[in-house]
């Protein structure tokens, strides 16, 4: 869907490049996560891909055509969910959505979307009466109102309670199942783990890692199995090499003869990968 080659960008007042030669591809129908600490260039990348910034160098192709050649019709195909609320606060949710819907050729059933995210009953309230979570959900509906082919989502579950976060994640999955492509930016690694087909970790304006969450976890994890088992009234621990597990007599004896308390493969978490790969704490 998007092919990005050697993307470099510098803000006019900066002395160094914010993006230093990013090369990656977002495939049609996948959920692609763009991860990294604050200020590393995630939002800049998203702004370039949504044509809010255009004085970059390198090449970006959308559907095999240079992104710079697209005019306003490009926006008929994309939906953008901003992290911060972007609504006319003195208009009702319904008035906001009705106004924006008129700008597009294709319109989603926003009543249905409002019902799904639990805002239908409040659709005639002014947005300034909404809580933060309600505004976030309305942002999400705004992103979907034109039946986009590509969704750009920035922290779509930030500020949501677990129930509403679940609803939003399920809609994202449905969107993907129906052929949609998603670029997801978030700090919530559980969301990444659950949703993303592939992720790219950005560090210092460059891609430090790019792969599926599973492959990254395998790559950065230890290939061992940790066991805790009961023996003579106490708890014992043991570690075994994952690759020769089936031939390891000691391991086989333990699982046959002892009471196993816990057993874990030592895959790492995306949180750990985030910290290791980007070289900083994820809250930075």
């Amino acid at each position: 869907m998007f092919k990005v080659k050697d993307l470099t960008f510098r803000y006019p007042k900066n002395k160094v490049d914010t993006l230093k030669g990013l090369t990656f591809e977002i495939k049609e129908g996948e959920i692609f996560g763009l991860l990294g600490p604050s200020g590393v260039g995630k939002s800049t990348t998203q702004k370039i891909l949504t044509k809010l910034l255009d004085n970059y160098s390198g090449e970006i192709k959308y559907k095999d055509k240079d992104l710079k050649e697209y005019k306003k019709e490009f926006y008929q195909e994309i939906g953008v969910g901003f992290e911060m609320p972007v609504h006319f606060s003195k208009l009702t949710a319904n008035e906001n959505l009705t106004f924006f819907k008129k700008l597009y050729k294709s319109n989603a059933d926003t009543d249905e979307l409002l019902k799904k995210v639990g805002l239908y009953e409040d659709k005639d309230k002014q947005v300034n009466e909404y809580s933060k979570g309600m505004k976030v959900r309305l942002n999400f509906v705004r992103a979907l109102l034109n039946n986009p082919k590509v969704l750009f989502l920035d922290e779509p579950t930030s500020g949501l309670d677990p129930k509403n976060a679940r609803v939003v994640k399920d809609i994202i999955k449905d969107f993907k199942d129906n052929g949609g492509t998603v670029l997801l930016t978030t700090h919530l690694m559980n969301d990444v783990d659950e949703l993303c087909d592939r992720v790219a970790f950005l560090a210092d304006g460059q891609i430090a890692e790019i792969d599926s969450p599973k492959n990254l976890k395998l790559k950065h994890g230890q290939r061992v199995v940790d066991l805790e088992y009961a023996e003579d009234g106490s708890t014992e621990k043991a570690s075994f090499d994952l690759d020769s597990l089936g031939a390891d007599e000691e391991f086989l004896n333990i699982i046959k003869e002892k009471k196993i308390i816990t057993i874990h493969s030592k895959e790492t978490t995306l949180d750990d990968i985030f910290i290791n790969v980007t070289g900083v704490g994820k809250d930075e």
Binding site: T50, F74, M84, Y104
Partner: peptide
């Protein structure tokens, strides 16, 4: 103030 300009900028308008 309300960030709505951003929302307009990613809409199919010139």
């Amino acid at each position: 103030q309300e960030g709505t300009l951003k929302s307009l900028l990613i809409s199919p308008i010139n």
